[in-house]
Design a protein around this nucleic acid. Structure first.
Lengths: 139, 139
DNA sequence: TTTAAACATTATAAAAAGGTCTTTTTATCC
DNA sequence: GGATAAAAAGACCTTTTTATAATGTTTAAA
């Protein structure tokens, strides 16, 4: 619940892709789906979105087609994926609700109070790149 | 996105209630709804659920009725509310997905890797009680 | 006995998650 | 080169969950 399912899937799929697609090696969506336990059709949509909104992956239609990473996986942070899928506000919001409230009280004490943990979470997502995950061999 | 809207509302509503209902002082749901910016009908349901699943609040029907806190607000932690509304797994799950995966790999390195930040978050929710919030006067 | 309040139930809306089927692209086989 | 098969892309649909609204019922104090 730290992020949406869509986002969770994106992270898993990209981590797998990063770990297993050496350059010019196209992987089948079906294979990735099975290995990462993500519904195949849904994964298709995720890769479509990733392909059209980022330069992280390249897909190839037709025989011998598939999906491959087009950037080094150490360059993709969890934070990048979360921002893309769920938006920035996902993380940087007061436990008390949206930013709206906080802007109404620019010196909102609640927000100050939360900021320590929000910073910790942010740092964690910033420092965790896909290759860090790959090294843990979670598949 | 750290928790559901339902949970966020519950926190806000309880915080307001804790801060404003001295014992035996019943507050109108309508008033709470306006002050906390929660849709009135929805708030009704939240209070119903709280009344039947916890011993935190008491409601009184009829004229001069309303809702009041039946426990000291320093005894309610954010964690309690989150557990109640969204379930424990909300917090204590690996960034890689459910516990299922982690149980399959009992020594899952990903889970180990996450546990620091998960502990930080848990601690934050454990230490933040409703009276801590009330002291910040966020309404 | 009226009236103000919570309670209960049902319906609606919107978003998230997932599935199905058709189209397009592309390598390979003949 | 044309046929074929394998793959992603794309459009559309269904289901589930979440959030909200509306409406009537019950309770109890004045």
């Amino acid at each position: 619940m730290l992020y949406s399912k869509y986002c969770e899937y994106s992270i898993r799929a990209l981590a797998y892709l990063g770990a297993n697609s050496q350059k010019k090696n196209y992987l089948l969506v079906k294979e990735i789906s099975e290995k990462t336990n993500i519904p195949c059709a849904y994964l298709h949509k995720i890769f479509q979105d990733l392909a059209s909104n980022t330069n992280w992956i390249v897909s190839k239609k037709g025989r011998n087609g598939g999906v491959t990473m087009s950037i080094e996986s150490r360059k993709i942070k969890l934070m990048d994926i979360i921002k893309l899928c769920d938006g920035v506000q996902t993380i940087r919001k007061c436990i008390f609700g949206g930013e709206k409230e906080c802007k109404a009280h620019p010196k909102c004490k609640m927000y100050e109070y939360c900021s320590y943990i929000l910073n910790e979470i942010t740092t964690f997502y910033e420092k965790t790149t896909l290759d860090v995950i790959a090294k843990m061999d979670p598949f």
